[in-house]
Amino acid sequence: MREYIIRRVLLMFPTLFGVTLAVFILMHLAPGDVVMAKLSEDYVTQEHIDRMRAELGLDKPLYEQYLFWVTNVLRGDLGTSLWSATPVRDELARRIPVSAELAILSMAVSIAIALPLGVLSAIRQDTVADYVGRFLSISALSAPNFWLGTLILVLPAIWFGWAPPVRYVPLTQDPWMNLQQVLPAALALGAHSSAVVMRMSRSTLLEVLRQDYVRTAWAKGLSERVVVVRHALKNALIPVITIWGSQLSHLLGGTVVMETIFSLPGVGLATFQAIERRDFVQLQGNVLFIAGVFVVMNLLVDLTYSWLDPRIRYR
């Protein structure tokens, strides 16, 4: 088990740097650079542009720029944003709590909606409740989250002259205001995962409910609650948890879109802006963080299997 964890942790490094290298290359394939984004004017002299490029180290060969960045990261220095000249680390530190709140809240939304619906659909298979649940999940699955987010934002504004507050207030400062802003975003973001989770929990629960040991539990005269929750659900959750793990990638990717739509100053919005401004230092810092969370979450998901199903062993 310990060896397994060590191996997985060591494997994280090539993964993460592979990701940042890919981002670096993609960024440089796209036309324009941060100096042009900052100046945006044709009349600035070439000399001025060259000087700014030199100041930012953009005049060096690409491999040198990347190596410089990697060496600094290994020393624990994520560099300085090419746009705002603030340290990437500080920027991330300010923004991570916002994204974390959004991700946790949408996870909570997706569990709170999906699990009860999934269970209900399974134990009342082919009833009205089941059909309604399945209809909702198909709808949520088909709706792109940026569209859902825009609707949640704009429709109340058109109908009632109300919209979620656009000026972000931290949770610690005014929880009620903060929730008015983050909850709609979490709903839009969590809708997709809740649909996936709902369908998954329904089908695995249906399968488990047909197993011999569940029939034995019914035969012992246990109540429906005990049979479903204690005996069936725990086993049915293993594939669901895998799905949760993979949904995390959706959530993290979705924060980019959702934070932009709802003006939440998190890592996602910073990523969107960094792409727009060709600020590859900030972008790579953000991507390193997002990929890091992703890799760690995958590891944690794998490890929870052995807790849920003691037959699973890692070598």
């Binding site: 704009v154 504004a157 002259g161 656009v166 709802f262």
Partner: peptide, 10 residues
């Protein structure tokens, strides 16, 4: 869209 919503909601 957020700017529109912000204007409509004053």
């Amino acid at each position: 869209a957020a700017r529109l919503a912000a204007f409509l909601s004053k």
